[in-house]
């Protein structure tokens, strides 16, 4: 891990020093800054805030929004909320797995894509929905999945 990243971790910790009940918010900030939470970051928080690593690790491993492994440059989120499910979401997920050659929650070896399952994004009218990074694609068919993935660089 390069030092620049630890600087960023320190900066984030600075925002919260002295406040109560901040661990989840702090980890979320690190996740969004680095796109994952490296071991070194957990240790740094522990050291500076005097919280046992085990306690920090427990939170980081419990929540879905936090990742302890590096994630791909593009996050492909397939919605499998109920509305998307009844409109064929699982078929979309199958197709995405097939194209990327990975399971949900995994990252391609070239670090280009991470495939995630999400349980409802609240845009049920567009189901089934695939979100790549921050772009929403609604009313997807299995045939369209490839197109969407191929447009990522």
């Amino acid at each position: 891990m390069v030092t620049v990243e630890l600087d960023k971790v320190d900066e984030i910790i600075d925002r919260y020093v002295g406040e109560e009940g901040i661990l989840i918010q702090l980890l979320l900030d690190i996740q969004s800054e680095l796109n994952w939470i490296p071991k070194e970051a957990l240790e740094r928080i522990s050291e500076r805030l005097k919280i046992p690593v085990s306690q920090i690790y427990r939170i980081a491993s419990f929540y879905k929004a936090m990742s302890l492994t590096p994630r791909g440059r593009h996050i492909v989120n397939v919605c499998l909320g109920t509305a998307c499910h009844v409109r064929g979401g699982p078929r979309i997920m199958d197709r995405a797995k097939q194209i990327l050659g990975i399971d949900a929650g995994e990252t391609t070896p070239d670090m280009k894509f991470t495939l995630e399952r999400v349980n409802c994004l609240g845009c049920c009218a567009l189901g089934p929905v695939v979100v790549v990074d921050r772009d929403y694609h609604g009313k997807i068919t299995p045939a369209k999945v490839k197109e969407i993935i191929e447009t990522c660089d």
Binding site: G81, A83, H85, N119, C120, G122, C123, C124
Partner: peptide, 8 residues
Amino acid sequence: DEGDPGAF
């Protein structure tokens, strides 16, 4: 924390 899928 509207977690129910299908509720927004």
